[in-house]
Design a protein around this nucleic acid. Structure first.
Lengths: 118, 118
DNA sequence: CCTTCATTTGAATAGTTGCTCAAATATAAC
DNA sequence: GTTATATTTGAGCAACTATTCAAATGAAGG
């Protein structure tokens, strides 16, 4: 591969240009990273996995995951802002559920990855 | 829904038990969160997306993403440890690529999610 | 109105993390 | 051997984040 000169400043410019042209814009990249990061915390991942099975209130989630109600609520707000979960109010209670099926797919694939590589 | 008593300590025990039985174990959850977290940083996400298109050396990646060689190398180690990327040595150079197709799928789904919700 | 309870919110803090810088490896060429 | 280059590594620091705690909001019942 003759074109592969890589000396601190000089790189294979063709390759870099080719890839550079296809990579998502900075803000799309940022948004994607935020979505992944949201799932990248054990507590939030548990929340999301629980909601993938059942609609649950904050209190249920707190007991299920064994994290304070306040902490759960903080995390739910974050997930809500990213439109990963949604909620409906019924009296005093707030029932949370997944906003769409993307998250379910992400969970399935990542579980497969982890189980394969362990 | 008569069973929904939720008073600070008492929760809908049935629901909680049902979900609790199906949630992944603590260490699987942890590993899954680590994988998501790895993709949850803008720099690492860019690295991975670039590698989804082409095999690249550290120097190429550094120029492409505009982050120091050292920083790229640190991030590549992390991605390597999680078996998200692999590499081969050719002389002085190290050529990195994706370890499997899971990552590609994750990227595709998350991009769709972000574009839908924007 | 007053109390109770589910949830939300803001501030503070302890722990984590991504980058930089300097130094260390490792390989190729002379 | 020496030199040059690609990559890796460790320490240190500034920025971020998940939780806790206390207080606020908002809805139902008496």
């Amino acid at each position: 591969m003759a074109n592969d000169v890589c000396s601190t400043n000089i790189v294979d410019q063709k390759k870099v240009n080719r890839v550079s042209g296809v990579l998502p814009s900075a803000d799309i990249n940022q948004s994607m990273a935020e979505a992944f990061k949201a799932l990248g915390d054990p507590t939030r991942l548990r929340i999301v996995q629980a909601l993938a099975l059942e609609e649950l209130c904050v209190c249920d989630l707190s007991a299920l995951i064994d994290v304070s109600v306040s902490a759960i609520s903080h995390q739910l707000r974050l997930l809500r802002n990213l439109k990963l979960v949604k909620f409906r109010k019924e009296g005093k209670m707030a029932y949370y559920s997944l906003d769409d099926d993307h998250v379910r797919e992400l969970i399935t694939i990542t579980r497969a990855h982890v189980l394969e590589k362990k």
